[in-house]
Amino acid sequence: MKILYFAWLRERLNRASDDVSPPAEVQTLADLIVWLRANDEALDLAMANPKQFKLSKNARIVPWETPIADADTIAILPPMTGG
């Protein structure tokens, strides 16, 4: 599974993506975020308020309860500001 990071999240993590293999019990995007944060201190700190992030599965914004599969590409989109 490919995880993509965007905007300030990418800059804070100092990487644009990760390839991960979550365990079988990780079945939804919400499960995935919990698992990613538990295994990556930098991501955990950056996502201190996780529900402010949008999640994308295969280039479509979807709810956090969306099921996932190994071949998916997941994007984590931080809140944006305009000006």
Rank of each mutant, 00 (worst) to 15 (best):
Leu4His: 08
Tyr5Gly: 02
Phe6Tyr: 12
Ala7Trp: 01
Ala7Arg: 07
Trp8Leu: 11
Trp8Pro: 03
Leu9Val: 11
Leu9Asp: 00
Leu9Tyr: 05
Arg10Phe: 07
Arg10Tyr: 03
Arg10Asp: 00
Glu11Arg: 10
Arg12Phe: 11
Leu13Arg: 02
Asn14Lys: 13
Asn14Val: 08
Arg15Cys: 05
Ala16Glu: 05
Ala16Val: 12
Ala16Ser: 15
Ser17Ala: 09
Ser17Trp: 12
Ser17Arg: 09
Asp18Val: 08
Asp18Pro: 05
Asp19Val: 10
Val20Glu: 02
Ser21His: 15
Ser21Cys: 14
Ser21Gln: 15
Ser21Leu: 14
Pro23Val: 15
Pro23Phe: 05
Glu25Tyr: 14
Val26Phe: 10
Thr28Glu: 00
Ala30Pro: 02
Asp31Trp: 06
Asp31Phe: 06
Ile33Gly: 01
Val34Ile: 13
Val34Asp: 11
Trp35Phe: 13
Trp35Ile: 05
Trp35Met: 04
Trp35Cys: 00
Leu36Trp: 03
Leu36Met: 03
Arg37Ala: 04
Arg37Pro: 01
Asn39Gly: 12
Asn39Arg: 12
Ala42Gln: 13
Ala42Tyr: 06
Ala42Met: 07
Leu43Ala: 14
Asp44Trp: 08
Asp44Ser: 14
Leu45Pro: 04
Leu45Gln: 15
Leu45Thr: 14
Met47Asn: 03
Ala48Gly: 10
Asn49Trp: 08
Pro50Lys: 05
Lys51Ser: 10
Gln52Phe: 11
Gln52Thr: 15
Phe53Gly: 00
Lys54Val: 13
Leu55Pro: 01
Leu55Ala: 03
Ser56Cys: 05
Ser56His: 04
Lys57Ser: 00
Lys57Ile: 07
Asn58Asp: 01
Asn58Ala: 09
Ala59Val: 05
Ile61Tyr: 07
Ile61Ala: 03
Pro63Glu: 03
Pro63Thr: 08
Pro63Cys: 06
Trp64Gly: 01
Trp64Thr: 12
Glu65Leu: 15
Pro67Ala: 08
Pro67Glu: 01
Ile68His: 00
Ile68Ala: 03
Ala69Cys: 13
Ala69Ile: 11
Asp70Tyr: 13
Asp72Glu: 04
Asp72Cys: 09
Asp72Leu: 12
Asp72His: 11
Thr73Arg: 14
Thr73Met: 09
Ile74Val: 15
Ile74Lys: 06
Ile74Leu: 01
Ile74Met: 02
Ala75Leu: 06
Ala75Trp: 01
Ala75Ser: 13
Pro78Cys: 09
Pro78Thr: 09
Pro78Lys: 11
Pro79Ala: 09
Pro79Asp: 02
Met80Leu: 14
Met80Asn: 09
Met80Pro: 06
Gly82Ser: 13
Gly83Pro: 08
Gly83His: 13
Gly83Ile: 11
